[in-house]
């Protein structure tokens, strides 16, 4: 196996491409830094000068409003200049290759590339070809990883549960296609969560999932039992009826989170969702808007976590 491409020679974070392979100390350092930024985001003047004069290029080869916006806000709060490029609609439509697009932007003096791409591994390719002073942050690649989402999920869990030891975390739904699930699983196992469960029908659980260090459940009722944290995954519209699932209704009946199913988890369980939610499909409104839900705080924490990541890769500390 080649050297972990995310770390520089001193073992520091050069790029953030995947949570897999990051040592525990770095994950904790990111979460701690995020905590310090929560204070900033609550102030009247929500800016710190850590990335003043630096340019952040949001390079989204796949549509996204929410993630792009949170990266933009995070970068601006660090005083960086932000350039948003909706590449899906421009260069690639003209046939320009991924690396050519990056080389062109690099010539415009970028410091950080925030990359979202529909193909697993694309940010690794970009990271292999950028200049030494440029940094790549993966904002979601195919089914592979969404590390800042994983980190904000970890942050949320630590915020509400304080410790990772002793927790039971259940991740429910379309694990097969979920980069969010993959990133979160690696984070949880690295931080010492003793029991990570994935719950879904066989069609939505990848081959050999147990090799990721998770327990696989096909029954939601068994899988939710005594869970401290329930993470619901988004089910994409195009997968709701076809060869993977017969219908959204049937999915909801077996794997949608209702108050009744949630009652099987621990009384103080928290419910998370990376958004955007399909109400009535993977999650009922009574749960999404109920007392166990921490879905909106997740979004708030997401900004601090992204500030932490950007300042760590490019802020010299």
């Amino acid at each position: 196996m080649p050297r972990n491409p995310q770390l520089n020679g001193n073992g520091e974070l050069q790029h953030l491409l995947s949570i897999e392979g990051l040592p525990r100390e770095i994950l904790v350092k990111i979460l701690d830094a995020a905590e310090s930024f929560v204070g900033v985001t609550e102030r009247d003047i929500k800016k710190v000068p850590l990335l003043r004069g630096k340019s952040v290029f949001n390079l989204f080869f796949e549509g996204s409003t929410r993630t792009r916006t949170t990266f933009e806000i995070a970068a601006k709060r660090l005083s960086a200049d932000v350039i948003n490029l909706n590449v899906a609609a421009s260069s690639t439509a003209k046939g320009e290759s991924l690396l050519d697009t990056v080389a062109n932007l690099s010539a415009m003096q970028a410091d950080i590339f925030v990359v979202r791409h529909g193909s697993s591994g694309a940010p690794f390719l970009v990271a292999r070809h950028v200049k030494p002073h440029e940094h790549v942050i993966n904002a979601g690649d195919g089914r592979h990883a969404h590390p800042t989402q994983g980190l904000l999920d970890l942050y949320t869990i630590r915020h509400y549960k304080k410790e990772f030891g002793g927790l039971v975390v259940a991740i429910v739904g379309d694990v097969l296609h979920s980069r969010v699930a993959r990133s979160l699983i690696h984070g949880l196992t690295t931080l010492g969560v003793p029991e990570v469960r994935v719950i879904g029908p066989q069609t939505l659980i990848p081959a050999g999932a147990s090799a990721l260090g998770v327990r696989v459940f096909h029954s939601m009722r068994e899988g939710l039992k005594d869970a401290d944290v329930v993470v619901m995954l988004r089910l994409q519209n195009e997968r709701m009826s076809g060869a993977l699932l017969p219908s959204a209704q049937e999915f909801n009946k077996h794997y949608g989170l209702s108050l009744e199913k949630l009652a099987l988890a621990r009384p103080d369980a928290i419910v998370m969702h990376p958004g955007p939610m399909n109400r009535g499909v993977e999650i009922d409104s009574s749960v999404a808007d109920g007392p166990h839900s921490v879905i909106l705080p997740q979004v708030t924490f997401g900004i601090s976590v992204r500030m932490a990541v950007m300042s760590m890769v490019a802020g010299g500390g």
Partner: peptide
């Protein structure tokens, strides 16, 4: 190959 590595890397598998 539809196995451990494809699952980790999020690549579509051929069983």
């Amino acid at each position: 190959h539809d196995g451990e590595v494809a699952t980790r890397l999020g690549l579509a598998g051929i069983p």
